[in-house]
Structures are given as structure tokens and as C-alpha cells.
Design a protein around this nucleic acid. Sequence first.
DNA 1: ATTTAATTGGAGCGATCGATACAGAACCGG
DNA 2: CCGGTTCTGTATCGATCGCTCCAATTAAAT
Lengths: 194, 194
Amino acid sequence: MARPRAFDEGVALGAAVDGFWSQGYGAAGTRDLAARMGLTTASFYNAFGDKRGLFLKALDRYLDEGSRRRFARLDGLAPREAITTYVADVVERSLADPLHRGCLLINSALDVTAQDPDMRDEIAGGLDEIRGFFLRHLQAGQADGSIAASQPAEDLARLFLGVVVAMRVMARVNPDRALLEGMARPALSLLDPR
Amino acid sequence: MARPRAFDEGVALGAAVDGFWSQGYGAAGTRDLAARMGLTTASFYNAFGDKRGLFLKALDRYLDEGSRRRFARLDGLAPREAITTYVADVVERSLADPLHRGCLLINSALDVTAQDPDMRDEIAGGLDEIRGFFLRHLQAGQADGSIAASQPAEDLARLFLGVVVAMRVMARVNPDRALLEGMARPALSLLDPR
DNA sequence: ATTTAATTGGAGCGATCGATACAGAACCGG
DNA sequence: CCGGTTCTGTATCGATCGCTCCAATTAAAT
């Protein structure tokens, strides 16, 4: 019927993720994005609509290949280990980040949300998936006794979401292991059964 | 000797704070800033150098009139009350924020830091003042027995900084009282002496 | 071989970006 | 009243912004 694409949409989207991640949604220019993706402007707009649409696809892709994939793996572990492993993983990824790019989702929370309710909801949804991960395992751990029940699982999940968010923010400005690990330590101590 | 300024530099700087706060450093345009400040572009650049210089002055002003002033007041309270009052205050300010502007300092952490080490240090310094506030009062509270010593004051200070940062970020995307208060509750429970 | 539909390259739209240039206006000390 | 110095208003710089348009190209369907 028609001329086929000379590029792989998935590969191009991956490059777009990188672009938004490195520069932020606002600061990423469509020309630079298209160049990273190996597309001309025409193909860029033809295939992805506009910058906003591309970003929504890129964010979804980022979550699929990042946190969602990680959660799926950790869901096989014991509740306590799932939580501690994920938190330790965030520390390591935050420190092994020479360009200080942090996390696209969390960066976008402060970049994109200003006047765009749809995007805000999208980002809020991504963050809520993190809270959901913690909540699942906290409830399971409290049920089997491996996690203290002195605080409601709902509140602990909120706190751990907060710790992860804060680590990602702080690491962009001050990527200091003592700070990140010290932040996590008292929160993790709340898991210990009495 | 020369023609005097037709504007008050302090008032203009206050308007600049508002501009950066509402739109973010990157998204704030010099024309819009100058208009908010009641200046022509010539006066804008003459008085403040450039956008970057203006931002540094604006951030310093923001900290002076915000967190530094608040800390000075709270330093009169008992350690535990200073901490709980400040945390409760952040919750209320985050929720009473119809434009979702959040905190200029924390917003800037993710907006500005990319390629500007000087600004990054400036922002890191502002965040460290928050950690310092918590550390002071945690140490005092542990010394007088009003705060549990089961966790090192250094780590608790890092956690509370994290909680405050996370509340400010989350509130921009999902300003939900249950989330913010639930995040603070387990952290504050760590203060309770056994 | 011709039709049809999609992609591609690239020029270019109007708007905005941060920053500057320059002429005239305003005030001071003399 | 005047020289000196700073401020103000406006026009404008070159670059970039997101995005559109169109002719040329490509390949599948007929």
C-alpha cells in the first residue's frame, strides 16, 4: 500500500527516552530529539504526533523497562527482601549516574506538571505504582510477621515512596552515599519486628 | 552624580522570586520576568546582570524569607516541637497551594542543576540548611531525652530532609493530605522515646 | 505498468529566546 | 546652566522554539 518506515519505532522511542531523560521535557528541543532518534522533522511529527505525545509514549516506555520490570522481578522475593532490595537498588542507581540524570518519572514530576492535568495524572500514576509495590509487600510482610505491624502498611508505603523520591532528587544535587543510605536506614528500621 | 533608579530593587527581586517560583528557572522568560518586576529589559539587565545572576539573588532572597526565617522562629521551641511543627507546616503549605508551585528551592533542584555546578552547590547548600535544622533539634532532643536515641541523629536528620523534599514533590503532582500526613507519621514515630 | 498511500528531505512559518545597542531623559556636583 | 553619569525606552540582534507544508521518493496493491 505505501512506503514503509525506514526506522524502527521502538528504537526511536528509546532514543527519545534518552533525550527527555538527559534534558528534561521542557528543555528537550524537537530538533534535538529528532536528531537523536535518527528522524527528520517530518518523520518525527508524522510518527509521534507532537512533543507532548512523544513524551507520554516515552514515559510509558521508560516505566515499562524500568520500575515495572523491576517490580515484576522483585515480586518473586520475600516481602522484606523485595523492599530492602529495591531501596538498595535505588541508592546504587542514584550513585552510579555520572550525568546526574536521576529518574525520568520523578524529574518530570517537577518539570511537566505545571499546567497540564493529563500529564500530571500520568506522572501521579507512575508514582502510585511505586507506592503500590511497597504496599503489597508491606501487607504481605505484616501478614506473615516478617515486618513490624506497629505502623499501618499504608503509611509505611507512603514513607517508602517518599524516601525513594527524595533519594532521586537529592542524588541529582548531592550524590552522597552517606546521605542516601542514612536516609534509608531509619525508614528500614521500621520494618523490624519488635 | 547620576540618574537615580525609578524602582525599588528589593521589590523587583520579590517579583522575580514569584516569577521563577511560578514558572521554574528554565521556563521563566526574561521578558516576562522584567514585566513582572516592572522593568524594561534595559533596566533588568543593567540592575541584575543576567537571568542566572538574577536567579541566584532570587533564590537567596527566597531562602531568607522562607526557610531561614522559619528556622529562626522554631529554634526557640523545644526540640521535638520544633521538628513536628515544621513538618506539619510543610504539609499545610503544600496543601494550601492552589497553583501547585511547591517550593522554589526543591523545584530548582531538578530544573537548574543539569550543567551548572555553581547553581547545584547553591541549591545543595539550601537543602543542607534544612538537614541542619533537623540535626540541631534531633541532637538536642536526644540529649534531653525527649527524642529516642535508637537511631543516630544524623540519619534521622537525613530522613526528615527526605520526607520534606518528597512532600514538596508529591504535593505538586498529587496534593493529597492522606499521602503527606501518612508519609510523615511513621517518620515522626521514630522520635518517640521507648 | 499504473494507481495509491505513506514516508522522507528540507525549506520555512511565526513566535519567542537571552542579550545588546543606542538615543534620550533625569539627576548630581560644580 | 552645564558636564558627567547613570537610568529608561525601544528597536533589534542572531538563535532557537514547536510545528507545518510540499515536492520527491518508495513500495505494496491492482
